[in-house]
Simulated assay, not measured.
Amino acid sequence: MTPTALIGGTLLLPDRCLEGHALVVSAGKITKVCANADLPAGVVQRDIAGLTVAPGFIDLQVNGGGGVLFNDDPSLEAIKAIGAAHRNFGTTSFLPTLISDTVEKIDLALIAAEQGLAENTPGLIGIHLEGPFLSPQRHGIHNPAHFQTPDAELLDRLKAPKGGSLMMTLAPEEVPAKLLRQLSSRGVKLAAGHTAATYAQTVDALKAGVTGFTHLFNAMPPMLSRAPGPVAAALESEAWCTLIADGHHVDDAMLRLAIRAKADGRMIFVTDAMSCAGTDATSFQFDGKTIRVRDGRCEDDAGTLAGSNLTMIDAVRRGVRELDLPLHIAVNMATFQPASFLGIEAERGSLKPGSRADLVFLNGALDLVAVVQDGNLEEL
C-alpha cells in the first residue's frame, strides 16, 4: 500500500499544535510525522489545508447511543450499533458501559464484549461495568436492588477480556482492599465512583489498586474543609479522573478549578451517553423509569440525572469554549489521557508513529469534517 502524506493541516499532539508538518499513513497506521521538506520519496500527498487533525476520540463511558441502550440489549449487535452512532461524533474507540444490573446481564455483557473483540469490532476496546459494588447512599440513577456484595463466584467473572480492557467503577468502601488488589492484579482498571468513601478510605483504595475516578464530583460527597472526601484524594493523587462536561452534571466553574488543580493533567472527558445520544429522542426508558431529555439534560421524574445526551465532539467544544482550554488540551482529554488510563497509549490516542490511524478532522469552527478509522482515508 502506497503511503499517503496529509499535508497543509494542523496536527494536534498531546502537548501542542504542530504546523508545517505532514502525517504519513500506511496500512492503517501512522508511520511518520515529519516536516514537509523531509517527506520520503514516493508518498502520495494529500492537501488538507484549513483542517486540524486529531486522534480519534476515546470514550470510556458509553451507556448507549443511536436509540440503543446497552442495559436493554447487552449483545454484540447493540455494541456495534452504539459504536456506529458515536463514530459520527468522532469517537473511534469506546467502552460499552453496563449500568448496575443483574448478574445475568453482567454475564451477557462480558460475553458480548469478548465476542466483539475476537471479531475486531470497529472501535471496541473492552467493556466498562459501572457497578454492582456501589454505595446505596450515592446510587444516583442506579437501582440499589442490583447492588452486590463481592463474592468469590462473581469475582471469578471479572477479568480483562482477551485483547481488551475491563474498567470497573466501584465504591471502594464496599470492597475490601484484598479484593481490590485481586481485581487489579487481573488487569481490571478500577475507578472509584458512586461512593460515600471518606478521604482516608479513598487514599487506602488508591494504595490497593484504584487508579481512576468515575465522573468526578457526581455521586460522591462534596469536598469540605474538614471532610475532603474522595474529590480531594482524586485531585492530589496520580489517578485519572473522568468528567462529564455537559454543563449539567458539574458547574463549569468547578470543572475549570479541578482541571487546574490536577497538576499531572490526568483528566478525561467521558460522555456517559444514553440511548438518546445521536437522536432526536425526547424520552426513553431505563430500568422501568421514563427518562426525559430536556435542553440536553436527561432526568427522571424526580429530577435525578440519568446519564447524558453528550457526544465527544461536544465535550471537546465545551472544553474550549466554556472551560477555557487550549484545543490541544481539550483533545488530549478525549484521546491521550483515556488511552493512558487503559494502558493502550502506544497504539491509540496520539499522532505518533506506530499508532492506529484513527483520526478526526476539524475546521476552524470546530465542526467535525471527517472521521477516519483504521487509516481508511476514503472517508476523508
Rank of each mutant, 00 (worst) to 15 (best):
L6F: 00
C17G: 01
E19Q: 11
G20L: 10
A22Y: 06
L23K: 07
S26A: 15
V33Y: 04
C34F: 03
C34E: 04
C34Q: 03
A35G: 10
A37S: 12
A41T: 14
D47N: 15
A49Q: 14
A49G: 14
A49T: 15
G50F: 10
T52S: 14
G56H: 13
D59N: 08
L60W: 12
L60K: 12
G64I: 13
L69G: 11
N71K: 10
D72Q: 14
P74Y: 10
A78E: 05
A81I: 04
I82Q: 02
A84H: 09
A85Y: 06
H86R: 01
T91N: 01
T92K: 14
T97N: 11
S100W: 15
E104W: 01
K105F: 00
L110G: 07
I111E: 15
E114W: 01
E114K: 06
E119T: 05
G123T: 05
G126E: 09
I127G: 07
I127E: 12
S135C: 14
R138L: 05
I141Y: 08
P144T: 08
A145K: 13
Q148E: 13
T149W: 01
D151I: 01
D151F: 02
E153F: 00
K159V: 00
A160D: 02
P161E: 04
K162G: 01
M168W: 14
E173A: 06
E174D: 07
P176F: 04
L179S: 03
L179V: 09
L180K: 02
L180D: 05
R181A: 11
S184A: 15
G187V: 11
A192E: 05
G193S: 02
T195F: 00
T198M: 01
Y199Q: 04
Q201M: 06
L206Y: 15
L206S: 05
L206C: 05
K207Q: 15
A208H: 04
G212T: 08
G212N: 10
T214D: 05
A219S: 03
P221V: 13
P221T: 13
M223D: 08
P230W: 11
V231Q: 08
A234C: 15
A234Q: 09
L235T: 09
E236H: 06
E238G: 12
E238V: 01
A239K: 07
W240M: 02
C241H: 07
I244Y: 06
D246E: 10
D246I: 10
A253M: 12
R260H: 05
D264I: 03
M267H: 00
M267P: 02
T271N: 03
T271L: 05
C276A: 14
T279W: 03
A281V: 03
Q285S: 13
G288K: 03
K289H: 06
R292T: 15
D295R: 11
D295T: 03
G296R: 04
G296T: 03
D300I: 08
L305H: 12
G307A: 15
S308K: 13
L310N: 02
M312D: 04
A315S: 14
V316W: 10
V316T: 08
G319M: 14
V320N: 14
E322I: 07
L323I: 09
P326C: 09
L327C: 08
Q337K: 09
Q337C: 08
A346V: 04
E347V: 09
R348H: 10
S355Q: 12
A357T: 12
D358K: 14
L359R: 06
G364I: 11
L368M: 03
N376A: 10
N376M: 10
L377Q: 08
L377M: 07
E379F: 11
